[in-house]
């Protein structure tokens, strides 16, 4: 059983401001999902390579050749808040006073 505290910690990592009732609901639902999912832990997977990538060919590279960028007006046009040049966000505070 995943505790509400655990869900709070995970929600914090995922930057989700869950309400108390959401936390309780998710704690219960995710607990029962994980109970069901635990069955894979009974598989004998010793020496099995994980499938980190789907069906892919290795070594996909591109030439180091520049193309014109999309440009400022284009990328910031859809932003919720800008100063006309940069994305504007609430102040990032790095040090403690």
């Amino acid at each position: 059983m995943i505790s509400k505290e655990e869900i709070t910690r995970i929600a914090d990592l995922a930057m989700l401001d869950l309400t108390d009732s959401e936390k309780n609901e998710y704690a219960a639902q995710i607990s029962s999902l994980l109970d069901y999912f635990k069955q894979i832990q009974s598989l004998d997977l010793a020496g099995v390579e994980p499938t980190n990538h789907a069906l892919v060919a290795d070594n996909v590279l591109r030439e180091d050749k520049a193309f014109p960028s999309a440009g400022q007006k284009c990328v910031i046009a859809g932003a919720p808040d800008t100063d006309g040049q940069s994305y504007r966000v609430p102040a990032i505070i790095e040090t403690e006073e």
């Binding site: 994305y87 504007r88 966000v89 609430p90 102040a91 990032i92």
Partner: peptide, 13 residues
């Protein structure tokens, strides 16, 4: 970058 008033930060990619 940060404004002097400490209200906003600005992001440049």
């Amino acid at each position: 970058t940060h404004d002097t008033a400490g209200i906003h930060s600005f992001v440049d990619y």
